[in-house]
Amino acid sequence: MRLADKVAIVTGAGRGNGRGIARGLAREGAAVAVADIIEENARKVARGIEDSGGRAIALKVDVTDPQSVQGMVDATLAAFSTITTLVNDAGVISRIPFFETTKEEFQRVVDVNLTGTFLVAQAVARVMVKAGGGSIINIASQGAERGAYELVTYCASKGGVKTFTMALAVTLGQYNIRVNAIAPGPIPTDMTAASLGDPVRRASIEAGIPLGRLGTPEDLAGICVYYASDESSWVTGSTMWIDGGGLAGLARAPIARK
């Protein structure tokens, strides 16, 4: 068990990618605070981890609210005494077309994906400074590396997560706090159901992936275990693509749009 001495907070862990990551960390021995804005989902995931012999607590958190974030940090410390690992997974996507996007909608997405990542990282890093180090893992996206059609708001927020990661790595290195990001490709979850639920669209996305399939939340677990473990003790400021090769380039000759 590579994470037997670790205590992790995973936000957005009630379902989708966060759930897969929380389970993956717990499987390697980490105690996990399963945090989600939907408390019932967090409870189910935490119960599942405990039923498999792992250690977990369920917490409700709104990552856009500093008080709620501090409550999550305090509750995790009360349960497990320390925090060694943070996975900032809570995120939202906006599918409103660019010209119809209001300031409020843009702000909503940035609030969760970017400001939320900042607020949680800041509150947890204060604990890690006192503890002598830690590992922060931010969830960026393919959309942090390349633009995506009609996903202007989402890409802007995730691009922010990537450079936030790099600047924070440079800033917190001397506290032995490592900050890295992962950039997943499209993964079928509740959040992406509106897009990947369409079989034509799904097939066209799959055709552009060299490994020929969409990712799964479980695919994200391995890299998060690596970043959480001491095996990556000299790794900081990096962004790991985990997308079946999608960002590497054109998997086949492009087909012109009709």
Partner: peptide, 22 residues
């Protein structure tokens, strides 16, 4: 096999050296 879905990617292992100005 933990990296089964990772291909065409790069992993920087440098203590944070190229992440930004330090």
């Amino acid at each position: 096999d933990e990296a089964a879905y990772i291909t065409g990617a790069t992993l920087v292992v440098d203590g944070g050296r190229i992440a930004g100005e330090y």
